[in-house]
């Protein structure tokens, strides 16, 4: 089992954060993981993305070059940039709150999540990233939700434990949203 996922958005949307959570959760499940951030002279509001690999096997190159099994795109520039990076048959998870556009390829599976609205409804618009992560793990089953929750305080510190409940809700809501979409298809 292997997932090679690109997580992309603008700085502040928490794309690096959910990438780290995913990698940490994979590690807790004794899988091999890598997390590779884009880095550059960008600042808040600029683009941010990371490549995350979670695999049962040893991980070769941590760089994803048009061989991603999935991409989570949080804003339009990310969708424009990374749709082509998904391998044929891969998954594109689109934050439709901010992306008013459909996937242009028909050889990949596209899922549309109204992540900002869903996050808002459960009480915190900042949790839109967790909604997207919830959709991703529900679709792929690459890690358990419990592992993400266990990773949460490891990545963000024990003092963030008070946000666990909200984030669990966000994961569940994302999972629900994507599963509804599958049943509709």
């Amino acid at each position: 089992m292997i997932e090679k996922v690109i997580v992309a958005g603008f700085g502040g949307q928490g794309v690096m954060a959910i990438g780290k959570l995913l990698a940490y959760a994979g590690m807790l499940e004794d899988k091999n993981v890598s997390w590779l951030p884009s880095y550059g002279p960008e600042m808040r509001g600029g683009t941010a993305n990371c490549d995350v690999i979670v695999s049962d096997k040893m991980i070769g190159s941590p760089v994803l070059t048009n061989d991603a099994t999935a991409a989570i795109v949080m804003n339009l520039p990310s969708m424009n940039k990374f749709e082509s990076h998904v391998a044929s048959g891969g998954k594109l998870i689109i934050n439709e709150s901010l992306i008013d556009k459909k996937a242009t390829r028909d050889d990949i599976e596209a899922y549309y999540i109204d992540a900002n609205r869903i996050a808002n409804d459960i009480g915190n618009a900042k949790a839109a990233n967790m909604v997207m992560l919830g959709a991703f793990i529900a679709l792929t089953g690459i890690v358990e939700k419990q592992s993400i929750l266990k990773a949460f305080t490891k990545v963000f510190g024990e003092d963030k434990a008070k946000f666990l409940q909200l984030n669990e809700k966000a994961l569940d809501a994302g999972s629900q949203a994507v599963l509804q979409q599958i049943s509709k298809v």
Binding site: K20, A23, M27, N32, V33, S34, W35, L36, P37, Y39, I59, P62, V63
Partner: peptide
């Protein structure tokens, strides 16, 4: 290199 410096692994 910049990659091994910036990336995370277990």
């Amino acid at each position: 290199d910049g990659m091994i410096g910036q990336m995370m692994e277990a």
